[in-house]
Design a binder for these strands. Structure first.
Lengths: 216, 216
DNA sequence: GTCGTAAGCTACCGGGTGGTCGGTTTCCCT
DNA sequence: AGGGAAACCGACCACCCGGTAGCTTACGAC
């Protein structure tokens, strides 16, 4: 039990921290095999406990999924919505939204994004909560596009359809991007900002170049 | 048994046709609840047979999924690849690809597209087959983008990344589009062609207007 | 040292899974 | 009328699921 060595140094193994570890392992497995195809024994084995032992830290399978999804939405709130909410210029805001969201997926890994689609596995109450948080995010992006439409910068497309399109492009990343693949994540990020912004804007101004300048 | 009435008219109820019906029903249920969450009893009930009776027409659950996925890829081959393969101008071809693919999803329903993602549920042999067919399609789109890059029409983005982006936008449609919703499919289709083409092309020429003219 | 608590395990539960077997019904053909 | 095949079903199988009860162990506080 190598973990015990660390336990000696930090005598109190926070129960919550251990639960966090279980969440992380569970997220990885569930993402790889799907929620239903993942058994509690799979998770217990991966985490080094028996199923019964694991139940001292968690409440149940569905609750596990709910916690993971909530964590995913927390990440969106903190790392995507919060840093972009106060950007005044809607074009600038859109660019930042894409950059932060895609950047998160590329860096943290898409596990969490993929699990966000297993909505039907949640209890109705939990499903309502997650759906509400998703809708909130969706509305923010949609309103950004509507602002752009108001100043004639948006292409002649339905703002909702355009928003769905943006989410499609970005969420799909987690289905194909491999961090050990040959495309570096900086390239993907730069390209995605360009693809996303250009797909919806008539005449995007040149990137303000805060982080990425045009290559040529 | 209302089906019997029809059987009287067409005395030979082709076994294959009955199997087809089962595939269709299974696709609808599996898409709604997910492959693993769908039991053979669910399907049997929906199709009006007992589980044992159903096994006279099908070979097993995994094979059912494989057949559905193969059918989906047949549809792509017939209705997307075949009618666009011989278009010479790559920009025209790209436009047609998006139009046909998105059009199919909007009209047939996305069941089949969503099921195409449950790759991990297949046996390795079946998985290899489906993956091969997917890759073939992917390569066709990618080469179209590469041709566009060769004539300086593609934006400064990696063609593979751009291809993934296109697939993301389009495949995502089946996750949000409701045929009984308020956005008519013609609008979605028109918008998607514009969004997709404009996302990857520097200066898309005005649509040749074969089917859809600019609205204003 | 010993006691209380938390951690963790073995053994088990009821129920549902994909799948099969043997038999019965139904229908068409002659 | 009756024979043969295809259609269909009730009962069952072995197995695995999520989850729990109750016991044992390990450890820190005093």
């Amino acid at each position: 039990m190598p973990r015990q060595a660390k336990a000696k140094v930090t005598p109190i193994w926070r129960k919550e921290a251990r639960a966090d570890h279980i969440y992380r392992v569970a997220a990885e497995i569930m993402c790889r095999k799907g929620y239903e195809a993942t058994s509690m024994n799979d998770i217990a084995d991966a985490v080094g406990l028996t199923k019964a032992g694991m139940y001292h830290y968690i409440q149940g399978k569905e609750h596990l999924l709910f916690e993971i999804m909530s964590f995913a939405m927390d990440m969106v709130d903190e790392n995507v919505i919060a840093p972009t909410r106060d950007i005044e210029d809607p074009e600038e805001r859109l660019r930042a939204l894409v950059q932060h969201h895609a950047g998160r997926i590329l860096e943290v890994g898409g596990e969490v994004t993929i699990l966000l689609e297993e909505m039907w596995a949640l209890t109705p109450a939990h499903r309502r909560i997650i759906r509400g948080r998703k809708r909130e995010y969706f509305e923010m992006v949609r309103q950004t596009l509507q602002q752009l439409a108001a100043v004639e910068k948006l292409r002649q497309v339905d703002p909702s359809v355009a928003t769905f399109s943006l989410f499609g492009m970005i969420n799909w990343i987690s289905r194909w991007y491999r961090r050990d693949g040959k495309i570096p994540k900086e390239v993907v990020l730069k390209d995605f900002v360009e693809l996303a912004v250009c797909s919806v804007l008539k005449t995007p101004s040149v990137s303000s170049g805060k982080k990425y300048r045009a290559l040529s």
